[in-house]
Design a protein around this nucleic acid. Structure first.
Lengths: 225, 225, 225, 225
DNA sequence: TATGAATGAGGCTTCATTCAT
DNA sequence: AATGAATGAAGCCTCATTCAT
């Protein structure tokens, strides 16, 4: 009885260790990707940052691209979770919470968001991670859908401009995207970044409210912050 | 008198041909960079595309990066020209023309705008094109300045929200940046792109107008979440 | 107990193999450098000669220059060892043994000595091996110092001409240097090389003895003639 | 009669200009080769240093190597001239003048002598300048021969050690070679170079005098400086 | 199972030489 | 006759991936 674990237990234990290491690889990659030029992050560096051998990395991921796309997926999933929470709040009566939740989830770690943009750009036509990229797009579109219903409601309430719902969402996405890029762009020597991001977020929150589209002159005080 | 060209003429002719070839290299690079993954564009391919030998490229550019940064500079200069025109109009009494001009100049060739973003990202810490990158930043900041005066006027007229003028410009930049990214992003299977861009432009035009920005001080994104 | 090696043993074994391969690369490079024009020795050829892949070379050396400078260092160190032995003998009462030891250690493998000269010439202003070159100079100067004390003694005994001690050493160096060059120089079709080298060595041994240096102050070569 | 030169004159004039330019190319190459790393001297640089076009260089020399070997030949010929003068003096009764002349002619412009060594090393197995290299060797051997007769006489007079005459000459060559190398070697931070060269020259002048070879103990005052 | 040495395709760059003008 | 733009072979180096231990 003593000092003897069942075969099942041992397997489970092994699996846990294995998964933990997988996560370690991903985290190591993330740290490196954020802290230095993407193109300089090699599998070798990732392995040593993770404290394991290079060969071991390939026990977990078939190719380097799989590690990278994994980071993309993890991020998009984390947004999905935050968004779900935001949507609940929105349904509880705070319509502005929708885009606010979105912006905040993306600007929470701008460097990560930007990294994912870059990775997407580099991997978009990689030929060894088709399924994962499909999954990535699927999740993104699920954000769109989820927000879509709330947005539709806001449109029918006359709060948001009456254009196809995904226009609103995509505009949000675009502004967030640009804000992130702005945050890190070295061409602008931005000093008061937080304050600027606050301004942009406020724009994002009211962006697309009725009266701003086409006529652009009929202003009305915003109903919900 | 006929059929005899002076030595000066011939030299001038040669220079023209030479410069034309330089432009051809840039164009070839541009075509390739836009049509396939940046990382797959090699000097060899550029030369082929331009119909010249690999070595010839190096008669015109010291390094590959110089070709790329040249594309960046050409683009930023072209925006400068468009912007100048837009500013004249704005001073002629059309205040909305400011951001409109900016958006239009950036969305005129979104694929190019996006390319320049990507190039900037890749070249920003290259060590062989310091002066060119400095020039790039300089031009960008000149856009900011140029718009700044107009924006200040709009603020004093109570049309734009009273925040530091560069907030307005940078917000514009961010939205445009994101819009461009959106335009080409393969994750969204966008079909009615031009209509969507129109919507976003309209947002950009009124973005930051007074009455839309409140309480923005109570929530600030932090860079490390 | 048998047929089972500990992990430590295996690691040690691997390291040995690894170092052996490093030596193999150096040897391969050496063979090529001696047997053909230096400029024709490429990393590719070295790899082939060593029976390994090109990439493997870079597991052992950061750059090609590091291989070359390694050869230089190995050689200079081997001279240091021989010299140490020679100095002991000299202190045991054989004053001529000093320069003899020096000449013999340099003429033992004249082709190698010559190679090192050439490498030095090519690498002297390489920018990727600064530390190694410093080490190289350091070892050389340690030869000078070591011989210096013995030479000083010979001067005080009135055996060697009373000039700064390093004059004697450097003269030795120069003659050895020239002898080596001579040995391999294809312009002279030297046939009785070893006899000739014996003659030169004998000159080196007595070179600078008192009574041979006079009036040397009245004619000085200028660096720019 | 006026303003009209005969065809022969014009051809002669052209030839003069042509030869002058040829010399200019060689001089330009020489300047560059001495002032910077040999491997960095390109045909392009030579042309612009000479103030002519690159293509023109190839009207004078079939290959780059031909320029380089030309420098070698020019140098060896200039030594031949100096040596001839020295020999006359020697025959006029100053036996020590022989090696002195040799040393002085080589140390007059040490940087040039060293350059020629380097060039020789690089070109020795070039396949496009066979005849020139043969000529180079021929001149060198003529030095040997010329000195040989004088040396033989000194041997028969009992002044020089009785070894094959070319031993003496080649020893001279070797010491001069080494001295030149020493002069420029960066490993030794030599400060009192002129004085050191003087010392070495004095050694060279008496080197191989009788009594120094084999027995190395039987010293006798030098008879002629 | 974990390792890291080995691999080699492929990228950038240089420069001697050619040749059309 | 002089030019210099064009050429492409050849060199160095990187790094994702494989595989024997």
């Amino acid at each position: 009885m003593v000092g003897k674990t069942s075969s099942t237990d041992r397997i489970r234990e092994k699996k846990k260790v294995f998964l933990a290491r997988e996560q370690k690889i991903v985290s190591a990659a993330l740290e490196l990707l954020i802290s230095e030029n993407i193109d300089r992050v090699t599998v070798s560096k990732i392995a040593s940052q993770a404290g394991i051998g290079k060969g071991t990395v390939y026990k977990h991921f078939l190719t380097k691209n799989e590690i990278l796309v994994r980071i993309m997926l993890d991020y998009e999933k984390s947004i999905a979770r935050r968004l779900a929470a935001g949507l609940e709040k929105a349904e509880a009566g705070d319509p502005g919470a929708v885009s606010k939740a979105y912006f905040e989830s993306r600007l929470a770690r701008p460097e990560l968001d930007r990294l994912v943009q870059k990775l997407e750009d580099r991997l978009i036509d990689a030929d060894d991670i088709g399924p994962q990229l499909a999954e990535f797009s699927r999740i993104r579109r699920s954000h769109e859908e989820a927000l879509g219903t709330v947005i539709s409601k806001l449109i029918s309430q006359g709060i948001l401009e009456d254009v196809p719902p995904h226009y609103h969402y995509l505009s949000c996405w675009a502004l967030a995207q640009g804000a992130v890029e702005l945050y890190f762009n070295k061409s602008w020597g931005i000093e008061d970044a937080s304050s600027l991001m606050g301004f942009i977020t406020s724009i994002g929150v009211t962006m697309g409210n009725r009266g701003q589209y086409h006529q652009a002159g009929d202003k009305k005080p915003k109903s919900a912050g």
